[in-house]
Design a protein around this nucleic acid. Structure first.
Lengths: 208, 208
DNA sequence: TTTCCTCTCACTCAAATGAGTGATTGACTT
DNA sequence: AAGTCAATCACTCATTTGAGTGAGAGGAAA
């Protein structure tokens, strides 16, 4: 019995070439390919795919919601994210939404096929970079979903105590500029634009 | 049966004149007067006072701990704080420690006697200023132990959302300077020196 | 009536902050 | 050997912030 695959990908060329590749392999059956995932739930229910390849950035519903919809409609379907982005935040959201794998588009087709086999075997195919990030997120005890480094967490903790950049620098025995550099990186990872927002987010989401 | 009173007050003159006043009234019995409350627990247990007059700022154990000790040693003893300070923070701490009344030292002796009667009748003698503060602290739903005004709470909530002074001003339709004015007042009441600290304290102590 | 408090607004000044950019080092991976 | 990444440091620039001080208007309380 061939493996039923559905693709959600708004880039027409990429989607079609992927579909062509899969169709050319006897062990796969293309059950459909779409340039948006607005009806992902229905599609999953009707065509009962074994595997879904899902892009993240698509017009209309994002692939993140796409995962959610597919998984709610048909939990036994495996969903593999297939995207150029390795955005930490989106990565985490996809995993929370129930994605079973996360491959970057730089992945060569053969690896993609391997990934499909792996996910069907109960595995979790991930690009190396992604895998490390996921693992790291569990090392630190907290819910470090923004992938802050150990040093950045230190800095964030001091920031929450109300320390200024100068005080943080003194406390950690680093330069003023280094402290500010860490702060800037933290703000980026947390998607905020100020220390105040960072503190609010950190305390609100129990990052530290 | 005379009312047994004990005074804890480090100002010798004030303590002695209070003691003298009380001794001159037949309905009161001075059970002791001390310039510190380090042994307040023992004293309360041994002399079983009906009422304790307690200063806040004393060498050694503070009057705040004094209240706690007396109340733990002998819960049926009524404790009246008698102090020059109307510091919001200390006021709150005293109330939490179990004080039954809070009179300012500007209170004339006659009012002090009235207060003693009131507390024995199950009342809660408080200077007017104090009374209002205590009431206000319950109007706003939260644990507003820093006596922030309604407006200040609004501002604080926006601050926690990461708003800058400029954004707060726009949101509340007030001037930039007024917004900053509120912020400065909030920092004072919260005993902090920056918005970051204020956010930390507010979220940490569930003020909002 | 007078006092007190809250909210409002204004001005100044030094310091802190956010942003942008770039560079070096060392560790670890591939 | 080449590449990636964390951590370190540096310099600039416009903006924001904390502080200090002062003041007026309206309302509630004594």
């Amino acid at each position: 019995m061939p493996i039923r695959v559905i693709i959600f990908e708004d880039n027409d060329k990429l989607r079609e070439s992927l579909a062509y590749l899969l169709k050319s392999q006897p062990e796969y059956e293309m059950a459909g390919d779409y340039n948006n995932c607005n009806d992902a739930a229905t599609i999953a229910r009707v065509f009962k795919p074994d595997v879904v390849l899902m892009d993240i950035d698509m017009p209309g519903e994002s692939g993140i919601n796409g995962v959610r919809m597919v998984k709610e409609a048909r939990p036994q379907t495996s969903v593999i994210m297939y995207t150029v982005f390795e955005d930490d935040e989106k990565l985490f959201q996809c995993l929370c939404a129930g994605a079973n794998g996360y491959l970057l588009k730089q992945t060569p087709p053969q690896k993609l096929f391997d990934g499909i086999q792996e996910v069907l075997a109960g595995g979790a195919p991930m690009s190396h970079v992604i895998a490390r990030k996921v693992l790291n997120s569990f090392q630190h005890g907290k819910s470090n979903k923004y992938f802050l480094t150990a040093r950045e967490i230190e800095v964030l903790q001091l920031l929450i105590k109300g320390y200024s950049a100068k005080m943080i620098a003194a406390d950690l025995k680093i330069t003023f500029d280094t402290a500010r550099s860490h702060l800037k990186n933290i703000y980026q990872k947390l998607h905020v634009n100020s220390g105040k927002e960072a503190i609010g987010k950190a305390l609100g989401e129990h990052i530290v």
